[in-house]
Design a protein around this nucleic acid. Structure first.
Lengths: 135, 135
DNA sequence: ATAAACCCTGTAGCAACTACAGGGTCAAGT
DNA sequence: ACTTGACCCTGTAGTTGCTACAGGGTTTAT
């Protein structure tokens, strides 16, 4: 009655998470992904946990976080070895940078939405996109 | 009575924009920054326009855009050579990715804010930060 | 049993910086 | 005018974060 754990080859994990198969190996090599179990023939066997972490890493990278920052963020979730105040301080640092990123993206969003509106209205756009992030 | 234009050396531009001095040269070499005027001795002389573009590039990079994407975005602002529908379509593509980034960052923001709240309440945090971007 | 599709390790390439090396420029102080 | 120190120039080499082979072993499906 042991419930079977769904497992994945590297190519399968790559497909599900949308992370390149080579990149998965790279993340393991630099300690971002915990090394998975191996088959008798030495091939990696990934489980759900790995997929979740891979998705988290990919989306964080897309948001401009470095691998070091992502390592930091991941270590927060496994904070048994940290004091509460350490977790609090590290979280606060990242929270500030996240809020700044959201602000900048919203400025860009507004600028682009305005440009689309101008195009739809068929007026000649002056497109001051650079201005969006300099003020 | 000609109003003087404020100009900047590379180191000054680097300091003001918070872009590494070497990186400024790199952006020029790959066509992201328009080449500035030179002094008699051959040294680069930057003006406000360069600083604005540098700040735009830096902040866009921090938001996870590639240099190619940033080139695209910059070219939108100088869209005299494009049809309105081209500008509209390119803007729409970037707008979608920006909205997705905002969504992801807001999930992270909430997770981190919750962790800080838990720490403040002095309860043991379980810190499910990975979960923030996998659902 | 044999082919196709995948995996392994290791290494080499690419993008986007970052940091020299070896020499020239410039501005400030004397 | 001259020196000195901080900066600039070009070119090249190193770093990070991937991405793509090469040469060989494993797995799966027929």
């Amino acid at each position: 009655m042991n419930s079977k754990i769904r497992s994945y080859s590297r190519a399968q994990a790559a497909k599900v998470t949308n992370v390149n198969a080579e990149t998965i190996r790279y993340y393991e090599s630099c300690g971002l992904l915990q090394p998975p179990a191996r088959s008798a023939g030495g091939q990696r066997i990934y489980i759900e946990e790995h997929l979740q972490r891979l998705i988290f890493i990919r989306r964080s990278r897309e948001l401009g976080f470095t691998l070091k920052e992502i390592k930091d963020l991941i270590s927060l979730s496994d904070s048994s070895d940290r004091s509460c105040s350490q977790v609090r301080d590290l979280s606060a640092v990242h929270l500030r940078s996240i809020k700044a990123k959201i602000r900048d993206l919203k400025k860009m969003e507004k600028t682009l939405a305005d440009m689309i509106k101008q195009c739809d209205a068929n007026t000649t756009p002056t497109c001051p996109i650079i201005g969006a992030l300099t003020s």
